[in-house]
């Protein structure tokens, strides 16, 4: 049976807990949390993640900056990245997708909807 490693990057502990809570419903899932872009880069080094869930508005390094760094690195080029943000404008969505995000989910999130998107990327059919 496959195991899945997720990285959740969000400065809000509430959001991190909510997303982690949802992802743990996938069998054999491991969730690593990071509270900003810099923390995420530390957690990324030496670890392999199947999918990254990324907030945009964060201190130190925001989600879009981290996204462009990851897409410029061949090691993380093919890791699916889902943006989870309060920014609901089309221009923000297009910007994130152009930078290489695979999906764009706006807050407040529906955890079952988020799980559906995650499972779609990982081709999980539970």
């Amino acid at each position: 049976m496959s195991s899945y490693n997720f990285l959740v990057v969000d400065d809000s502990p509430t959001m991190r807990q909510l997303i982690t809570f949802a992802l743990k419903r996938i069998h054999n899932s491991q969730v690593t949390e990071a509270n900003d872009g810099v923390d995420a880069l530390k957690k990324l080094s030496g670890n392999k993640f199947n999918l990254i869930l990324l907030d945009i508005n964060m201190p130190l390094m925001d989600g879009l900056k981290l996204l462009s760094i990851l897409r410029g690195n061949p090691s993380y080029n093919d890791v699916p990245i889902i943006i989870i943000t309060t920014e609901g404008a089309d221009v923000d969505r297009e910007k994130a997708l152009k930078l290489g995000a695979n999906a764009y989910v706006t807050k407040p999130i529906q955890t079952n909807e988020l799980l559906r998107v995650v499972k779609e990327f990982l081709k999980i059919n539970e």
Partner: peptide, 23 residues
């Protein structure tokens, strides 16, 4: 999860933004 008043206020704000979707 905390007894620090500033932390509590921060958490209430987070809940209202992230779970309710208030601007």
């Amino acid at each position: 999860s905390t007894l620090d008043i500033y932390e509590v206020l921060k958490i209430v704000v987070e809940i209202i933004i992230n779970l309710i979707g208030a601007e």
